Simulated scan of single mutants.
Amino acid sequence: MIDTPHYWWLTAGLALVLFGDAVMSLRPPGFIQRCLDGVRLPRDWWWVLVVTKLLAAAGLVVGLAYPGVAFTTNVAVIGYFVCAAYAHFRARFLKREFWLNCMGMLAFSVTVLLVGYAV
């Protein structure tokens, strides 16, 4: 069975970043609005992203104490950002927001998974 992360601070860092992203998404600044409008996500659905990110942050924190939870949540976060990247490609919205926000978070999530469980 997969244990808790070897480097807890990486997982905690990802949880903190996701929590901050969720809080910012409550009243999205311009770069987040451009991103969501760029992929044509209806504004009525923006709340779903906030809930998803808050639940992911909670899962990562809970997973620091319970084996397998952080790993599973980290994999789900990667899946979330893969889907977000697909939405960007499909909408042909590949501007700076895509590379910094979406791909940056995807790279960070993958790094946390690989480094956090490698040993």
Rank of each mutant, 00 (worst) to 15 (best):
I2S: 07
D3N: 14
T4W: 01
H6V: 06
Y7R: 11
Y7F: 12
Y7G: 01
Y7A: 02
W8S: 14
W8N: 12
W8R: 15
W8V: 10
W8M: 08
W8A: 12
W9M: 05
T11W: 00
T11N: 06
T11S: 09
A12D: 11
G13P: 09
L14K: 00
L14T: 05
A15N: 01
L16N: 04
V17D: 09
V17H: 09
G20R: 06
G20Y: 04
D21M: 13
D21F: 13
A22D: 13
M24P: 01
M24E: 09
M24G: 08
S25W: 02
S25F: 13
L26N: 10
L26P: 01
R27Y: 05
R27S: 08
R27D: 02
P28G: 12
P29K: 04
P29R: 07
G30M: 09
G30T: 06
G30H: 08
F31P: 09
I32D: 00
I32Q: 13
I32F: 11
Q33A: 15
L36C: 01
D37V: 10
D37G: 11
G38S: 08
G38Q: 10
V39Q: 14
L41S: 11
L41G: 03
L41D: 07
P42I: 07
R43M: 03
R43D: 12
D44H: 10
W45N: 11
W45Y: 15
W47A: 13
W47S: 13
V48I: 08
V48T: 11
V50Y: 05
V51M: 07
T52H: 11
L54Y: 01
L55P: 03
L55D: 03
A57M: 08
A58Y: 01
A58N: 00
A58Q: 03
G59I: 03
G59R: 01
L60A: 13
V61A: 10
V62K: 01
G63H: 00
G63V: 07
G63I: 08
Y66M: 04
N74W: 00
N74E: 13
N74C: 10
V75E: 01
V75R: 02
V75S: 02
A76N: 02
V77H: 07
V77Y: 06
I78C: 06
I78F: 02
Y80F: 14
Y80C: 06
Y80L: 15
Y80H: 11
F81A: 03
V82N: 08
V82P: 12
Y86K: 07
Y86I: 15
Y86A: 10
A87M: 12
A87Y: 06
H88W: 11
H88T: 08
R90M: 10
R90Q: 14
A91E: 06
R92M: 06
F93K: 06
F93W: 14
F93L: 04
F93R: 04
K95R: 07
K95N: 12
R96H: 06
E97T: 08
W99T: 04
W99V: 00
L100R: 12
L100I: 15
N101G: 07
N101W: 09
N101H: 02
C102T: 14
C102N: 13
M103W: 02
M103C: 06
G104R: 06
G104M: 15
M105V: 05
M105S: 00
L106A: 03
L106V: 08
F108L: 14
S109A: 15
S109G: 07
V110T: 13
V110D: 00
V110E: 00
V110Q: 03
T111L: 04
L114V: 15
G116L: 03
G116F: 02
G116V: 05
A118N: 08
V119L: 15
